[in-house]
Amino acid sequence: MELDASDVEKIAHLARLGINTEDIPAYARNLTDILAFVEQLNSVDTTGVEPLAHPLDATQRLRPDEVTETNNRENFQKVAPETESGLYLVPQVIE
């Protein structure tokens, strides 16, 4: 699978990841190499093999539906770039 500049731009957009225009050819090359490398996976027949989601086959643990954490909003928002009245601020979304 050969990826070109427009593929890289599309993927970067999906990931909301800013990349410099001059770096795009290098990313296209790296990604093409990496995908060519993982192509090896197709050399093995995996028909009927269950995908391994957890090495110990553990499933999600449930707990009683009780309050276990206290409100730490002030503490956690101390590290936020911009807050007001306990809310996170972002650029205006709705006119």
């Binding site: 993982v38 197709n42 093995v44 995996t46 093999v49 269950e50 995908p51 090495p55």
Partner: peptide, 10 residues
């Protein structure tokens, strides 16, 4: 596919 191969590796 990778998760299936992972099963084979385990």
């Amino acid at each position: 596919k990778a998760q299936q191969v992972r099963h084979l590796i385990r």
